[in-house]
């Protein structure tokens, strides 16, 4: 268990990192239908062009991963992943409450997506 003192210290640090606190609305769920790997993504925007729902917009900074503007509209068709020229640059991320479970037949060990 963390001590209360340590917890308060962490909290102060977190507030310090975030210089200002802005009044923002709730983010719609799912917040992250896909996850970009900025080290692998070349910012080519192939996913922006292939997405059926037009979930993304190009990043204002050239070469950076696109911005997920409408995560709540994602169909989870995976076209963005299928059409990506850089394997691993983008991966589909199922909403937490829609993750299917399985059991290893021999050991009975439980896992999930």
């Amino acid at each position: 268990m963390k001590s209360i003192v340590r917890h308060e210290k962490e909290l102060k640090e977190a507030v310090l990192i975030r210089k200002s606190v802005y009044a923002t609305p709730n983010a719609p769920a799912p917040t992250r239908p896909v996850i970009f790997n900025p080290d692998l993504c070349i910012g080519c925007n192939a996913c922006v062009e292939d997405c059926q729902m037009d979930v993304f917009i190009p990043n204002p900074e050239k070469g950076e991963p696109p911005i997920i503007l409408y995560p709540d509209e994602c169909w989870y068709g995976g076209c963005c992943v299928a059409m990506c020229p850089e394997p691993g640059a983008i991966r589909l991320n199922h909403p937490l409450m829609q993750r299917v479970r399985w059991k290893r037949k021999k050991t009975g060990e439980h896992s999930r997506v």
């Binding site: 975030r18 802005y22 983010a27 992250r32 970009f36 900025p38 911005i67 997920i68």
Partner: peptide, 10 residues
Amino acid sequence: MSKWEDYAQE
């Protein structure tokens, strides 16, 4: 920054 919210937080 790849989410709209990242920008809002800044």
